[in-house]
Design a protein around this nucleic acid. Structure first.
Lengths: 145, 145
DNA sequence: AAACACCTTAAAGTGCACTCTAAGGCAAGC
DNA sequence: GCTTGCCTTAGAGTGCACTTTAAGGTGTTT
């Protein structure tokens, strides 16, 4: 007999509000069990499932896609390929996002260095950030100025 | 004489809509120049500035913080430290986001591998993803199941 | 002269994912 | 017997960053 959690306790456990858990249930992402008084309860298995949902959400997957994924799951092993491909796309997209983010971060880093250079006078007072940036732009594709 | 762009052309150039450019101007992020008929025009310098704004936005900086940053910029060199620190915080936050994203992606990757294993029968039909995941959980801090 | 690109202000609409309120009711614990 | 935690449906509110509309206007191009 694995422990049973009521919605309040479960919410704290998974880091969502009870509102959100009911909302996810409405949306078909979660199925809850009920005790004799129609009160929801959740199990260890549910903790894992919500945990996995949070991993998917954490990689930028939308509720609608999550719904679709859950529907496929309910249809059994025949949908494994499609589910796999969904996850692959989410992963690819997230990795592209990271790559883009890192490009932006690089410029940010240069700007911070440029500020530091102005403060400690190792960069001429007259040098614009744009000019300063040029030195990193000699090679490779890049946007911006 | 550097080229002057009207809002439509400029919008295409920087990848924003004319609406958004006016909106940013309302918000104080951009200052536009006007010709004799009160028609906005932009210069190469403005392309660089919008480009930089997009780098900041691309790292997750909010409009409100961007406004604050622009205000500080207008106050001159005395605010360099504060601006530098703002950028550093944005950078730190973005890097933390990336780290978290990558943790989620790792689980996603394992799930994809697990699907692949099910399809080509290298993973027992009966092994749950949770059990499968355990092997990666021996070391290090981790959430989820 | 019509089409096109631009101008103004104010306000409403969009999309996403919650988040909360209202207004009623049940069951367990102190 | 009162507080606490849960239940329901339906709908409104939140936050963010746009995005569009309305309804009037000017100036340039075809």
């Amino acid at each position: 007999m694995t422990k049973q959690y009521r919605i309040g306790e479960f919410a704290k456990l998974v880091g969502l509000s009870a509102y959100t858990l009911r909302y996810y249930e409405d949306q078909g992402l979660i199925v809850s069990h009920r005790d004799g008084n129609d009160v929801r309860f959740y199990t260890e298995e549910d903790i894992r499932w919500v945990g996995f949902i949070l991993h998917l959400k954490g990689t930028g997957m939308r509720l609608n896609d999550l719904k679709r994924y859950v529907q496929l799951r309910a249809q059994g092993d025949a949908t494994i390929k499609e589910r796999r491909d969904m996850l692959q796309k989410v992963k690819d997209d997230a990795e592209a996002d990271i790559a883009e983010l890192q490009m932006h971060l690089q410029v940010l880093g240069h700007k911070i260095d440029w500020y530091d250079g102005k403060v400690d006078q190792t960069i001429a007072d007259t040098e614009s950030f744009h000019d300063y940036l040029q030195q990193f732009n000699e090679q490779g594709a890049n946007k911006n100025g």
